[in-house]
Write a protein that binds this DNA or RNA. Structure first.
Length: 422
RNA sequence: GGAGGAGUGCCCGAGUGGCUAAAGGGGACGGACUGUAAAUCCGUUGGCUAAGCCUACGUUGGUUCGAAUCCAACCUCCUCCA
């Protein structure tokens, strides 16, 4: 295993030097040879995303940032959407099977994921990145053919040794054949991409190590080719929690699931202790700047947090949205609940239909249910236009709208929304 | 194949006929304090246009005025025997 952030004096390739100093490297199958390859010329690398939800979330930023760096440094990324593997479900480090997804759900999720991926990676031009879907080949296999061609290359003995399934086996929890075969499918993906597009490197989260190794081994046995695997670390916050989970759900990358301002807020609220690490991992600021910002102490760190938030938001939602979000943040937290640009839009018709405050709180994503919102109101945590709301049954009326038919809604100290009706 | 044990809310974990929407802890969120941080203290933590109603303690049925708690079958797991 590679220590993240270790001075990369021996490395020849700029790519690995950058990834290491950014803290994006956790494990690698053969760091030295990969380094030579990356130094010798463009390498094609892939990262895959299964269609488990309608949007990617901040956890997916790690492999995506890695791909961005590789692209920036002259290598070619392939982003793989798991249209095929999503029908199976990766059992890695899970103690029970995922609910099986229907084809329609998968198709819908893939389009949401594609949206974010296309923002983060440049697919234009001949040398641009590639976007592929493993349904293209996985659905073509016939069962007996598949078993003969690939089943013969895997042993159950070996497959059972992977940590990703070991705990499930040891806990005697059921692991279906369907799930167990997931690692074969991902291995075949890697082989397929190496054949079709000369892809030699797979990037994934640390939970993907086993799946990646299987691909590397399959290519060696089957095609006599050396492929490489590189995993990014699992990020936890300073308080030890898995990153990106909040009361209102995951921190989504898709603007329909979390507004750019909400996204900006998430990063602005980073704990002090996480700031240096997050700057390295999730921004593309030069290391000198990262180090300078990391030196800041106490309340000065607030400026670093704003820069962090604005940088990440720019990568995910674009520079313009990032600027807006920052401006919003500055204004909304300046003192009063000042208005900037709307974070949410609603049809004016909703007011005529009798829009409840609780519904609005849920709608903007500050509560997961009206009951949840109800409790927030009872706890004195909800403010409408700067005034604490006492009555959970409060309805929104035309009289609540300020200029331009807008109102501000705030939950707690940090979550604020500007809702426009039109 | 046989004998015994277990399955609780986001997680861990009490409860063994009504006082239980379910102790306690963790996490999370809200309030106070602050720097939109941390620590600390207080509160909340199934759903619902909500002084009420509805769903909940593996699943499905049953006993009972009343069940997470008793019974039956089923599913899953654990331990011991073969």
């Amino acid at each position: 295993m590679i220590e993240a952030g270790r001075p990369a004096t021996k490395l020849k390739s700029e790519a690995l030097q950058v990834l290491l100093e950014r803290g994006l490297v956790h494990q690698c199958t053969d760091l030295e040879t990969l380094d030579r390859n990356l130094a010798a010329g463009p390498v094609t690398a892939y990262a895959g995303f299964d269609a488990t939800a309608a949007s990617l979330h901040v956890g997916h930023l790690m492999p995506l940032m890695t791909m961005r760096w590789l692209q920036k440094l002259g290598h070619r990324p392939i982003l793989l959407l798991g249209g095929g593997t999503s029908r199976v479900g990766d059992p890695s480090f899970r103690n029970e099977a995922r609910p099986l997804l229907g084809d329609e759900q998968i198709a819908a999720n893939i389009s949401g994921i594609r949206h974010s991926v296309e923002r983060l990676i440049d697919f234009r031009g001949e040398d641009g990145a590639l976007l592929v879907d493993n349904a293209d080949w996985l659905t073509e296999f016939r069962f007996l053919e598949f078993l003969r061609d690939f089943g013969s290359q895997f042993t159950v003995n070996r497959m059972m040794t992977f940590d990703s399934v070991k705990s499930r086996l040891e806990a005697q929890m059921p692991l279906t054949v369907l799930e167990f075969c997931y690692m074969m499918l991902q291995a075949v993906d890697f082989l397929e991409l190496s054949r079709r597009h000369a892809c030699t490197l797979q990037i994934g989260g640390s939970d993907q190590w086993g799946n990646i190794i299987n691909g590397v081994e399959l290519a060696r046995k089957g095609d006599g080719k050396q492929l490489f695997g590189l995993t990014v670390p699992l990020i936890t916050t300073a308080s030890g929690a898995k990153m990106g989970k909040t009361a209102a759900g995951a921190v989504w990358l898709h603007p329909e699931h979390l507004s750019p301002f909400g996204f900006w807020q998430f990063w602005r609220n980073t704990a002090d202790a996480d700031v240096p690490r997050f700057l390295r991992l999730f921004t593309e600021l030069p290391m000198t700047e990262v180090l300078r910002l990391s030196e800041l102490q106490g309340a000065e760190l607030n400026e670093a947090k704003k820069i962090l938030a604005t940088q990440v938001t720019a990568i995910v939602h674009g520079a313009e949205e990032a600027r807006n979000a920052r401006e919003q943040g500055d204004r909304l937290f300046a003192g009063e609940e000042e208005l900037a640009a709307p974070t949410h839009r609603l049809d004016l018709q909703h007011l005529a239909d009798g829009l409840g405050l609780l519904q609005l709180v849920v709608h903007v994503g500050f509560a997961t249910s009206t009951s949840d919102a109800w409790r927030l109101v009872e706890g004195g945590g909800v403010r409408l236009n700067g005034r604490v709301v006492e009555d959970p049954r409060r309805r929104i009326a035309v009289g609540d709208l300020a200029a331009e038919d807008q109102l501000t809604l705030a939950v707690g100290r940090r979550r604020k929304a500007l809702v426009a009706f039109d």
